[in-house]
């Protein structure tokens, strides 16, 4: 078995673990972590595709490699937004279920 195939199969397994975690995750934070695991698997798969496309003096196809960099940064942005939502929710719940202190509540 070539190294690329090995990493490709590992990436497939990482994706499966991520999907499982997304489905059964207890709480939003667990799901966010699972999303990152799944993302990691997809990125590695892209890396395998890049490695298989090595040529023209490059160790790997630079296009997918560059795209993975973009993807990692986007995944981080998503995690940051999700983490902030989780924290705000915990903060509001800690106030004891009372509707938020803002006066504009009109329901």
């Amino acid at each position: 078995m070539s190294a690329e195939t090995l990493f490709g199969l590992a990436a497939a397994a990482l994706c499966a673990i991520g999907i499982y975690g997304l489905m059964v995750g207890r709480g939003a934070l667990a799901r966010l972590i699972a999303f990152n695991l799944l993302g990691g698997g997809v990125f590695v798969l892209f890396g395998v595709v890049a490695r298989r496309g090595a040529g023209a003096g490059f160790g790997g196809d630079p296009v997918p490699q560059a795209l993975v960099i973009t993807g990692i940064v986007v995944a981080f942005s998503a995690t940051a937004l999700g983490a902030a939502l989780v924290e705000r929710l915990a903060q509001l719940r800690a106030k004891g279920g009372a509707p938020s202190e803002e006066p504009e509540a009109d329901t």
Partner: peptide, 24 residues
């Protein structure tokens, strides 16, 4: 969740998880 109420943030979080799942 612009209004910042608890239920909205919960809805936003659920939306985010579904949307991220979709993007991945």
């Amino acid at each position: 969740c612009l209004d910042g109420k608890e239920g909205q943030i919960e809805a936003a979080l659920r939306y985010l998880v579904f949307a991220l799942f979709g993007s991945v």
